[in-house]
């Protein structure tokens, strides 16, 4: 048996539907032209996002990483990163601004130190290892060369990946002139790059389309009578505001020329 929905929850949902619909339509109004409704929603987006980030940072860093471990578990050593963090804020005091360098030096040094071995291991050696694979596989009594293009681990695909990686790396290697045989290799690299850029573009477009479908689905859902049809009312309001703004004669400054 479904749980009864309390009046407060229902009100919050309906109010939320109106808010979400209004903000969605205000942002979509930019497709017509830049206008105050879009700017309002845009600035609200920045404000709410920053506020959300601040609250989450406060909860994660101040409460769970600093206050609780120090007060409840007595981890006094955590006062060191707090002190380093506070040094960053000396940037607001011109005479003491140089002290913020200690904080940046620590972060940059730590980041660089962590990056070197991990980058070599994961992004260079592992990638090279996956690029240079055996071309022949053990199948039954003998060795075989797999031509199956649909299997990314097939022998033919291993050759294609090797050619792709080598030619693209060569294209970005500018210490020798790309002429003669080198020109052919570099041009092959360009073809691989163009295919990858096209694929990345197509993939991004479809991801954005997916988001668009999500927003339109919400608008369709909120056009229901149970929400008070916010989609239709707010769509009319948005169009009316845009028409009013379009009809308003702008007060242009006199032409001085």
């Amino acid at each position: 048996m479904p749980q009864p929905v309390s009046v407060t929850d229902m009100d919050a949902t309906i109010l939320g539907a109106w808010m979400a619909t209004g903000l969605t339509l205000f942002i979509f109004s930019f497709l017509y032209q830049d206008n105050p409704l879009f700017k309002l929603a845009e600035h609200l987006y920045v404000g709410v996002s920053v506020g959300y980030t601040i609250v989450k940072a406060y909860d994660t860093v101040i409460v769970h990483l600093i206050v609780k471990p120090i007060v409840e578990e007595g981890q006094i050593a955590l006062l060191i990163p707090v002190a380093i963090g506070l040094l960053m804020l000396t940037r607001y005091v011109p005479r003491a601004a140089w002290m913020s360098r200690y904080a940046f030096a620590f972060i940059v040094g730590l980041g660089s130190g962590l990056a070197i071995p991990r980058t070599i291991s994961s992004f260079v050696l592992k990638q090279v290892e996956d690029t240079i694979r055996p071309l022949l596989f053990q199948a039954g009594d003998g060795l075989t060369f797999s031509f199956n293009l649909l299997n990314p681990a097939s022998s033919l695909n291993a050759v294609i990946i090797l050619i792709g990686v080598s030619t693209v790396l060569f294209y970005f290697f500018f210490s020798i002139e790309h002429s003669g045989p080198g020109k052919i290799v570099a041009r092959t690299g360009i073809v691989f790059l163009m295919i990858a850029f096209g694929a990345a573009f197509g993939y991004t477009v479809m991801a954005r389309m997916s988001l668009l479908i999500g927003r339109l689905t919400d608008l369709i859902e909120f056009s229901d009578v149970s929400y008070g049809r916010p989609t239709w009312w707010l769509l009319m309001l948005t169009i009316a505001v845009l028409v009013l703004l379009a009809r308003r004669v702008p007060n242009r400054p006199p032409d001085l020329h």
């Binding site: 980058t119 070599i120 992004f123 260079v124 990638q127 090279v128 996956d130 690029t131 293009l149 990314p152 695909n157 294609i160 990946i161 090797l162 050619i163 792709g164 990686v165 080598s166 693209v168 790396l169 970005f172 691989f192 790059l193 295919i195 990858a196 694929a199 990345a200 993939y203």
Partner: peptide
Amino acid sequence: LNVLNASVRRAILIGVS
């Protein structure tokens, strides 16, 4: 995506690394 795009991403990743 799995073969041609992966090979280019791998080359760029090696260069960036």
